[in-house]
Amino acid sequence: MKLKLAVYWTGSCGGCDVSFLELGPGLLDVLPQLEIVFWPALVDAKRGDLEKLPSRSIDVALVNGVIRTAENKEMVELLREKSKQLGAYGACAHLGGVPALANHAPGFTEVVFGPGFRPASPWPEAPEDAPPALLPEALPLDEVVPVDFVVPGCPPPAGLIARFFQAALSGEVQAGQVFAEDKALCEECPRTREERRLTRIVRPHEVVPDPKTCLLDQGMVCLGPVTRGGCQAACPQAGMPCTGCLGPTPKAGDPALAMLSALASLVRAGEEGEDAFPQENQILDSLVDPIGTLYKYAYAKYARPLQRLARRREEVRA
């Protein structure tokens, strides 16, 4: 019995679909065991083909991308109904991802397309050709349908994809399973840590990092300490701070707030005390774009309740 697999993209860049190639020769072992029933990026199939499938006839469906449009929502609801197990594949489906930072800029269409932008109205004779309506917010997959498991990452690293296929092909995907480590990235990061303190905060382009020592100690906002391991600390190894694509560790809660607390705790401008407050504030102020930095992938998943409160406040004030 081959594993009946569906892969679907919603609001995504396409990188997740390509990421399967990262398996390299390993793909040759996996492919013969799969029956691809639906995978628009790979084989031609339309919504109608999916609708024709019996309920729960797909063994495993993987969705990559953020839920951005009404069509995204309908499609994943349909997939949910047709699948035994449905997983979020990649950071967008898992957490909202980079596209969901749009939630932070509610007037983004104006910013991007200029004033007066609105979706074109469909021809009256072909209403089905109308572009799908944008949802008021970009959503992670689990806000729309129940999600059984997560293959995280932007895109998921090869090792985790392999781990997923191994489990899926042997029918051992656990409910709620996240195919990544429970421990944070620092566990696998080869960089060394001395006495931890943050005397400045810099952006990656501002320094040439020392190749051996912890990037956080060098002032970069590395989200490694709050992010699941599983990528072998690929970015820090290449001199770039972790931006959190594998999502927070199981007990971290909101990764941005957890990291905010850690960063503020580490800041030192000389000896702690009232005299140091102004310089400490200066260091904290040098964290440019805290939301984009700390919530890069996780904004939709974690910041939405606050953001809704903020929206309401704006309306009240208006």
Partner: peptide, 15 residues
């Protein structure tokens, strides 16, 4: 410390 979850990042120690 929950050792199952601790990555040894060491942010705690200087606090």
């Amino acid at each position: 410390v929950n050792e199952e979850l601790c990555s040894g990042c060491g942010i705690c120690a200087p606090q």
